[in-house]
Amino acid sequence: MDSVVCEISVEIKNTDGLHMRPAMMFVDIASQYDCDITVSNNETSVDGKSIMQISVLAATYGTKLKIRAEGIDSEKAVESLRELVEDKMFDEPGPEEK
């Protein structure tokens, strides 16, 4: 079995943090991939495809999260998740835009 592991670190850049709407966007994208996706802060590791578990991270503005994907499409998965969190910022404003 081919097992490709990709791991990156992302930072939450929208002011309101990873509340329910962003968490749902995250899970939606994560669920489009076959690979297993784990998201962790310093304390907890959760399933990147579960809305309840992602909400438990309570990632506030400035929080750094580790995204780990394991599976054949893991590289694509982490890249689109990074784009969502850091480039699109969940279509939400950052602190300087408010």
Binding site: L18, H19, Q53, V56, A58, A59
Partner: peptide
């Protein structure tokens, strides 16, 4: 206070899980 909202949600979901 977005951080407080996140903390309350975190707490709620810890238990709801």
């Amino acid at each position: 206070d977005p951080d407080k909202h996140l903390q309350a949600m975190e707490n709620l979901f810890q238990h709801l899980q």
